[in-house]
């Protein structure tokens, strides 16, 4: 049992860095290209350690994101819980995929995440409907995914997170 919960701090640290990257101010033109770091880190851990990072963890992570963004509480939580659900139900197939295929899945998942948060923000009157350029964030996330995957896998193996 002690072996099972090994290296929690690595998971938390990776999420913390993802939060930092998510709120670091970008110049205006680059706003739409901002990768969804938190969603990507979540997808990785849900895929690698599905028995540790589950839907509840994703929900809490989303709640922290809501606090940091100043958005409606529960908005990112809902989106990330659904992302975690999809990842968990696909995780065995995802592990078999090549990095290109994984990028495709990340593109779809992050795109779904962006769409869901966008719709909810419009429904909650926290934003107004604009163009769909914000979906470029999914593209940049998918582009970064292979490197991020390798980095997080190195961290997981190096620190023996199980």
């Amino acid at each position: 049992m002690q072996q099972r919960n090994h290296g929690t701090w690595v998971i938390l640290l990776s999420f913390f860095v993802a939060y930092l990257l998510a709120i670091v101010p970008f110049p205006d033109w680059a706003m739409n290209y901002r990768p969804q770091w938190v969603a990507m880190v979540l997808i990785y851990w849900a895929m690698a350690l599905p028995y540790r990072v589950g839907i509840g963890f994703a929900w809490m992570a989303g709640l922290v994101m809501d606090l940091l963004e100043g958005s409606l509480l529960g908005l990112n939580a809902l989106a990330l819980a659904i992302i975690a659900y999809i990842t968990l139900s696909l995780h065995q197939r995802l592990r078999m995929f090549s990095s290109l295929q994984q990028s495709g899945v990340v593109l779809a998942l992050v795109g779904l995440h962006l769409m869901m948060t966008h719709w909810m923000k419009i429904a909650a009157e926290q934003a107004v409907a604009s163009n769909l350029l914000f979906l470029l964030g999914a593209l940049s996330s998918a582009f970064i995914w292979p490197w991020m995957f390798v980095l997080l896998r190195q961290m997981r193996r190096g620190f023996g997170v199980r």
Binding site: G54, I55, G56, W59, G62, L72, L73, G74, L75, A77, L78, A81, I82, A84, Y85, L88, S89, M120, A124
Partner: peptide, 21 residues
């Protein structure tokens, strides 16, 4: 149980969002 869990969390999020707004 995965489906039930995600459904529970979706309902919870909606409740929290409703309460917050």
């Amino acid at each position: 149980s995965l489906e039930y869990r995600v459904a529970a969390f979706v309902v919870l999020s909606m409740a929290v969002m409703f309460a917050d707004s």
